[in-house]
């Protein structure tokens, strides 16, 4: 029952955010600031995640595929898995841990120190001032980060597959081109945008309704990461079932 109530409240926050999207003033400065925070500052962690995921995936599939002489398909398998699943999902989970948690902590602190009340008192709507820029930035930046993760991941797979395991470079690349369609990548990016919406909305929601001082901020942060991660994985299943 509590879960249902919470889902309803998050949806309400989504509706409010969407309504504010249509109403000026649009605070581009705040949006850019959040884009930098969510996007640019998540670049390192995205690159590391992508590279190692691509690498280990090449390693694992090689062991399996070499049993029946299908080593040539390692590249395309890695690329498909990254574009459709691992790129968007792992990127979103990493950004949830980095930025979603920070959103909950920042808004939570603002709540318990009455800064959110101060916004209301100064006739500035906190959903428009705090939540909207974070949600917009996340929806825009997650697909971009996913592109980076996909690309770096394939590079990682290439390094492991071609340089360490000795797969022919030409075949590795040719099979990727043969089997990976632009739609695979686009659908992955669409997922990433949805995951960006989930992680920012949940992070902001948990922060916005924080109560109970420093302990409350800690609780909000933890709950935001757990709830957003689980929701992303569940949404991934639903989106995949619908799209592919």
């Amino acid at each position: 029952m509590h879960g249902l109530e919470q889902a309803g409240e998050i949806l309400l926050l989504l509706v409010q955010t969407a309504l504010w999207l249509l109403r000026p003033p649009w605070r581009m400065r705040l949006v850019f600031k959040q884009m930098e925070f969510v996007g640019v500052k998540s670049l390192n962690v995205t690159i590391l995640t992508g590279a190692f995921t691509g690498g280990v995936f090449a390693l694992q599939t090689y062991h399996g595929f070499s049993l029946f002489g299908a080593e040539s398909l390692v590249g395309s398998t890695v690329a498909l898995a990254l574009a459709r699943e691992l790129g968007p999902v792992l990127t979103s989970l990493m950004v949830t841990g980095r930025a979603g948690s920070a959103m909950a902590a920042e808004l939570g602190t603002m709540r318990v120190t009455e800064q959110i009340d101060a916004l209301y008192v100064m006739a500035v709507n906190p959903v428009q001032y705090l939540v909207l820029p974070r949600v917009v930035a996340s929806v825009v930046m997650l697909p971009l980060l996913t592109i980076v993760a996909d690309f770096v991941g394939i590079m990682g797979g290439y390094v492991v597959g071609v340089h360490l395991l000795g797969i022919n470079a030409g075949i590795f690349v040719a099979k990727i081109i043969e089997y990976v369609d632009p739609e695979d990548i686009m659908q992955g990016l669409f997922k990433a945008a949805i995951f960006g919406l989930i992680l920012s909305l949940v992070g902001c929601f948990k922060g916005f309704y924080t109560y109970g001082g420093a302990e409350g901020v800690g609780r909000a942060t933890t709950e935001a990461v757990v709830l957003a991660s689980v929701t992303i994985l569940a949404a991934d299943y639903v989106l995949t079932a619908l799209m592919f």
């Binding site: 603002m110 120190t113 009455e114 800064q115 009340d117 101060a118 209301y120 008192v121 006739a123």
Partner: peptide, 16 residues
Amino acid sequence: LRKRFGMLFQDAALFD
């Protein structure tokens, strides 16, 4: 209406 008000919060509630 709120534009006619100013409020000083207990811990000032400055934007940190």
